[in-house]
Amino acid sequence: MRLLVALFAGGLFGAGLTVSGMTDTDKVQGWLDLFGAWDPTLAFVLGGAILPMLGAWAIARRRQTAMLGAPIPAPADPVIDAPLVTGSALFGAGWALAGLCPGPALAVLGYGGWPALAFFAAMTAGMIAQPFLPVPRGTRAA
């Protein structure tokens, strides 16, 4: 059952990315291009995605477990540390360069041809390498 739900959620995520146009790197790069031909589509996507999740978190806060029995994930400590900031800055740089983040990179993998495969290969290599790379230190309570 968990597997079917995961397959469904992944499929709906992929369909939503396709419908919203977030698989089109021009739209994503256009969003980041504030000083060019700015494209606000991404704000509608992010806003639209946050709406159902506001309701979901409101329900989740009143429950100990999810419907299939797993615990509701505990929130992380509200600490803004160096890995969070450095990692997010690296991610933002790569996101701007290619116009893909991990969700859309998976969504275009099947039909995006060799550039989609090349990006995916490099992204997975980065994910595998990261635990072996130095991590910036420093913590600041939020």
Binding site: G11, F13, L17, A49, I50, M53, G55, A60, I72
Partner: peptide, 20 residues
């Protein structure tokens, strides 16, 4: 974008509330 975004949010809501 809004419709696709709502689909993405619903997917995340199902994954959270059903699978945790």
């Amino acid at each position: 974008g809004l419709v696709g975004g709502l689909m993405i949010g619903c997917a995340a809501a199902v994954f959270l509330l059903v699978n945790g």
